[in-house]
Design a protein around this nucleic acid. Structure first.
Lengths: 197, 197
DNA sequence: AAGTTTAAGGTACGGCCAGTACCGTCAAAG
DNA sequence: CTTTGACGGTACTGGCCGTACCTTAAACTT
């Protein structure tokens, strides 16, 4: 049918498909992302899609990447404020429709560790950076111990929050829980420790 | 067909179906658990299944419950040993075929928080208990601070390990990582904190 | 400008599987 | 011995992924 009259090729068509996939993804989530619907919305057919992406999951991930954004790490002046703000950002993000899509994708990727790698590169490893940033400042201020810069230590708070999402199926996590994570676990852990006897 | 000759009813049939579902689940995982195959293996048909479980996921969960077992918490005499042993148990469990099935189910449950609750009851909350047990003993020995008995604190190690499984798609986690979790995060967190000078 | 290559469009399947409908049949309850 | 309701068999619907095959148009070549 090609409403535009002229037949699109190459990059133009690819962009149109991706755009349609993004639209479907935001409208119906990954579960509702069907190849037929994407093709229809893009005004093309499934062949054009399968020439570019090997399967539905790959297309879904590609579409998600169009949506993902990164925000600069907060700088409130003290560690507790920074940590809480980072957690709240993450909480908002996971509660948002975008977060729901990400969870769906992670779910669908499941064992396909090939595809999973792409998602981690985007959602996982990028997560560590802001924590190291705010902790670096805290160490400089003497608020945190240098050992806290160990990645596994630095990211404990966000990992606990992620666990909250995974275990409770709840869409959003109460702010009380965030405060609890910060005060009961994270700050005691990263704070300058008294020398072990 | 009914190889048994007599036609089974009620509990007998239900048991046969569940048994077949368990067999299929262990043989092919949840992805390979199809209603047709279960019916065939049980020597019945899909109707009998759908009269008892509303959908495939419910059947999968029911079958999984048949498989899940609990092991008594370790008691090595010191906290570090107990913690490591608990983590190693969990590591083995998640690496096992059974763990793979559980991950598949959690994946499939996804948003269906109704079904998710059933799985949590089995895999999630039951997890906290052994940690409180070993920590209770450690507190009595003076190895850990009483604040460590806070559930969110007590379960930090296992949550970090779970995160490892979720993020790295890896089937098993290296023992080095377990040690790292214990020594870098868990012990510093729960250990009796030196009175702030 | 004519010819050639390559990708798009159109359409129709194959295959898989969840879930449903219908009906004949047999076991258990009364 | 009759009635009831669950069981067995089978056949469908419907959705959707992924593929095959052919026609047509764009772009590139000579």
């Amino acid at each position: 049918m090609g409403a535009g009259g002229t037949r699109r090729r190459g990059a133009a068509l690819e962009e149109a498909i991706l755009h349609a996939a993004v639209a479907e993804l935001t409208a119906s989530g990954y579960a509702g992302l069907t190849m037929d619907k994407v093709a229809a919305r893009a005004g093309t057919n499934k062949n054009a899609i399968y020439r570019r992406w090997p399967n539905r999951l790959a297309l879904g991930i590609a579409a998600y990447r169009q949506l993902a954004i990164t925000v600069p790490p907060p700088d409130t002046g003290d560690l507790r404020g920074d940590v809480l703000e980072l957690l709240r950002q993450a909480n908002r993000h996971w509660s948002s429709p975008l977060g729901a899509i990400l969870r769906e994708l992670l779910s669908a990727a499941g064992g396909a560790s090939q595809a999973l790698a792409q998602l981690r590169e985007q959602s996982g490893d990028a997560v560590a950076a802001p924590w190291l940033t705010i902790l670096g400042r805290a160490v400089a201020r003497g608020e945190a111990s240098p050992e806290a810069l160990h990645p596994r230590v630095a990211t404990v708070a966000i990992v606990l929050l992620r666990n909250e999402f995974v275990m409770r199926g709840a869409p959003t996590t109460s702010d009380d829980v965030l405060v609890e994570i910060v005060d009961e676990v994270y700050l005691p852990l990263v704070r300058r420790r008294a020398p072990t006897a």
